[in-house]
Amino acid sequence: MVADAEKYRALDEKVAQRIQARNSLESYAYNLRNTLQHNEKVAGRIDIDDKRKLENVIKEAITWFENNQEAEKEEYEYKQKSIEETANPIMMKLFWLSEEVD
């Protein structure tokens, strides 16, 4: 009985980590999309090419997410890192631009 409990505990932990990675990816993609669509400060300062890049990577990530609800933790983490590789430099550029203006 103890062995079964340990086995299920490990399985539960793995499932919890997968769900956490999935939720993290989903939250990141939707928050980024909402920032682009609803934050006038961001929308007004972002370069049109950068905005297109972000919109494309977000759309691709959301589509991937919707089609891969049962992906592994590592797949969700990889997808989020790929979004961050595009988004972080653009958002940092916005941050520095806003610092110069303020």
Results as ranks from 00 to 15, higher is better:
89 P>Q: 05
54 L>N: 06
24 S>T: 14
68 N>H: 14
11 L>H: 05
73 K>C: 05
100 E>I: 02
59 K>T: 15
94 L>W: 03
79 K>W: 01
72 E>Y: 07
31 N>I: 08
22 R>T: 06
68 N>K: 07
85 E>W: 05
91 M>C: 01
98 S>E: 08
62 I>S: 07
5 A>L: 13
97 L>W: 05
13 E>V: 02
36 L>Y: 10
39 N>Y: 13
71 A>V: 11
21 A>R: 06
35 T>L: 08
31 N>S: 14
2 V>I: 08
67 N>E: 14
72 E>W: 03
6 E>V: 01
4 D>S: 00
11 L>T: 05
49 D>I: 04
92 M>Q: 12
18 R>F: 02
30 Y>W: 13
34 N>W: 09
91 M>Y: 04
34 N>D: 15
74 E>A: 05
101 V>F: 02
12 D>H: 08
46 I>G: 11
70 E>W: 08
42 V>T: 15
23 N>H: 14
89 P>D: 10
69 Q>A: 10
35 T>A: 12
1 M>E: 13
55 E>V: 08
80 Q>R: 14
91 M>F: 05
1 M>N: 10
69 Q>M: 12
48 I>R: 00
64 W>Q: 09
99 E>G: 00
20 Q>S: 07
25 L>V: 05
99 E>S: 02
96 W>L: 07
65 F>D: 07
67 N>V: 03
84 E>I: 10
49 D>E: 15
85 E>Q: 11
46 I>E: 11
70 E>K: 09
19 I>M: 09
18 R>H: 07
92 M>N: 10
52 R>C: 00
69 Q>G: 14
77 E>F: 00
42 V>E: 15
24 S>F: 14
72 E>A: 11
15 V>F: 09
9 R>L: 12
26 E>W: 08
28 Y>K: 09
2 V>K: 09
79 K>N: 06
6 E>G: 00
70 E>F: 09
30 Y>F: 11
16 A>S: 07
96 W>A: 03
59 K>S: 15
51 K>T: 07
59 K>M: 15
62 I>T: 11
81 K>H: 08
